[in-house]
Structures are given as C-alpha cells and as structure tokens.
Amino acid sequence: MTKLKPIAQQVVAIVGASSGIGRETALKFAAKGAKVIVAARSEPGLLSLVEEIEAAKGEATYILADVSDFQQVKAIADKAVATYGRLDTWVHAAATGILAPFEQITPEEFKRVIDVVLMGQVYGAMAALPYLKQEGRGALIHISSLEGRRSLPLQSPYSSAKHGLEGFLESLRVELQHENIPISVTSILPAVINTPYYNKVKTKLGVKPTGIPPYYQPSLVADAILYAAEHPTRDYIVGDVGRVLDLLQRLSPSLVDTLLVLVGFQGQRTKEVKSEDAPNNVFAPITGYDKVEGDFRHWTIPSFTEWLEKILP
C-alpha cells in the first residue's frame, strides 16, 4: 500500500498554476507548509501567485512552460529537484479548449487541444516518474474531467483528450502496480467549475461559452487534490452533479444522449456576443485572467457527497 507524506513535508509541482484550479491548489498546498513549484505559460500569473504565497509566509518558485513541449515539462520536474532536493507530488491541471461544432474545427486546432490536454499530461508523468521513483513513493495527480467519462457536444477535442487521459492513467496505474512501485496515480474528475476557463478558450459559437450549469467553486477541486496528495486515491469525482451524470452514463448512454440533445447546445451559450477572433489561450497565453474564479459564481452550488470519494477504494 502506498504511504504518502504529510503535505507539510512535501515538494509539490503544480502545472497550469497561473489561474483556476491550479492556482487555488498552489495556494492551499503552500498554506499547509508544502514547498511548491508552479508552472504555466503566463509569467504575470505566476509572478503574482508566488508573491501571494510568499506574502502568506509560504515557499514557492515558478518556471514558464508550454506543456505541449516535453523538454519544457521536464524542466519543471528538474527545477523542483534542483531547488528543493526532491519531488513528492505532481499535479497536472493545464488545459485549453475550443467550443465549436466539430465541422468548424480545423485540424490544427483539434491537434493543439490534444497536444495540451492529453500529451501535456503524458509528458508530465514522463517527467515526474523518475524523480518519484528515486524517492520510493509519491503521487501523480492528473486533473481530468467528467468529460473523460461522458463527452459533450461542441467540445469534441477536449472530450477526446480527456477520454485519452483516462485510458493512459489506467494503463500506467496497472504497470506501476505490476512493478510494485508505491506511486499513487489519481484522476480528479471535476464537474463544471467556476474558473476563467470559459473566458480563455476559443469559441466559434458567436457568444461567450459557458459550462452547462450548475457550477462548483474551484476550492472544492483543490480540496480533492490535497486529499489525494496524502491518501492514495484512484478516481475522485468532484461535484454531486458529476456523480449523477457518471451514474446515468453507466446505466444508459442513450438516455444521456437524449438529455444532451435537449440541454447541451443552448446550455453552453451565454447571451454575451463574442467573436471567434477574440483573444484566446489555445496557441498562446492571454492576459487578464490570472485569478482563481471565473464569472459564474452566481451559478455555483455546494456539493454534499464528497465523502463518498473518501470511503470508496
């Protein structure tokens, strides 16, 4: 059985940390005494995050990285070990997306989402595993999505990437078990979360996109990540609605098809006009969104069944 260190004794790398779930997670790890190395493409976001952590007497360093490039991802793990002497937990949250009908997505756009959302996570595991093996234990925590269990319309590249991630983690987990290597491999599967994701992705819907409400706050996902950093966990669905959707998908995928035909198209559109030429973060970072929360706090609800993930194997 894998035994993980207390958070206060850990060195944690957090990839995709300039905003949203990654940023909130970095703040919470640092507040509990972990030494954190944070990575993203947005230098202003990383600088402000490190300043916030240090102002609260935490310890952090940053490195710029585009996760579609393996050497840049490897540099994150290398810097963690060079700075703090080891690596205990790897948290991979970097993502981008395009909301559009499949026929309006170019091959280059589709591939870019796969490169960031799937290959970036693969590169993360490749970079972190040698150092975790050196320590003889540790945690790989990958931020997946309920879209890894159930794809949504208008998000075919992102859903494809998350399904690929789930397949990759299942394979890796069994290989490590076969080798009797005590490294925990966790998939965190959030429902719709109130982060700046929907501000930053590319849209070809003619309007600013949204997740299908209700939303949950990023702190709920960060709490799940911190739990998995101390308690070996296979999968952790975040949000009651996510657990309901997962159950429905298992019982009747065709029923979920029908529900998504009814709510999945209008439900991902706001009334705010937005051009497909508007700035987006698919190929390069954009400024102005280096924060934890997005614009949908008024649509957030609490979740009451998180305890389920802590008692299930």
Rank of each mutant, 00 (worst) to 15 (best):
D78G: 10
V38Y: 10
R41G: 05
V67F: 03
P44E: 12
V73A: 05
G33N: 07
A39Q: 05
E59V: 11
L47S: 14
K79P: 08
E52V: 04
E43P: 09
K74D: 02
A60S: 12
S68Y: 07
K32V: 08
E51P: 09
A82R: 12
A82L: 14
A82F: 12
L87M: 01
V50L: 03
E59T: 15
E54S: 11
H92N: 14
A65C: 13
Q72F: 02
K35A: 11
S68I: 09
R41V: 08
A56D: 13
A93P: 02
R86W: 11
T89S: 01
L47I: 13
K32T: 05
Y84Q: 10
I63L: 15
T89A: 03
D88Y: 09
D78C: 08
A93T: 02
V36P: 09
S68W: 00
E52D: 14
I76M: 05
Q71E: 14
T83D: 05
Q72L: 07
V36L: 04
E52N: 10
D88S: 00
R86L: 11
A93I: 09
A65P: 06
D69H: 00
A34K: 07
A55N: 15
R86C: 12
K32A: 11
V91N: 04
V81Q: 00
Q72S: 00
R86E: 10
Y62D: 04
I63F: 02
S48T: 13
W90A: 00
T83F: 06
L64M: 10
E52Y: 04
K32I: 05
Y84A: 11
Q72D: 03
V73F: 01
F70C: 12
E51T: 13
K32H: 12
V67A: 00
G45E: 10
L49E: 08
D78Q: 14
Q71Y: 04
V91L: 07
L64P: 01
V91K: 02
V36I: 08
F70E: 15
V91R: 06
Q71V: 00
A75P: 08
D78A: 14
L64E: 06
V50T: 13
S68M: 03
L49P: 06
I53Q: 07
A80Q: 12
G85L: 06
V73T: 15
A55H: 13
K74W: 02
L49F: 12
S68E: 00
A75F: 01
D66R: 08
S48L: 09
A75G: 06
E43V: 14
S42T: 13
A77C: 13
E52I: 02
T89Y: 04
L46F: 01
Q72A: 10
A75Q: 08
E54P: 05
Q71A: 15
L87S: 07
K57P: 01
V50P: 10
A77F: 09
P44R: 00
S42P: 01
E43W: 11
A40Q: 07
A77D: 05
D78P: 10
A93V: 01
F70G: 11
R86A: 12
E59M: 06
I37V: 15
V67I: 13
K74I: 01
K57S: 15
A34S: 11
H92F: 04
T83N: 03
A55R: 15
V91P: 02
G58W: 00
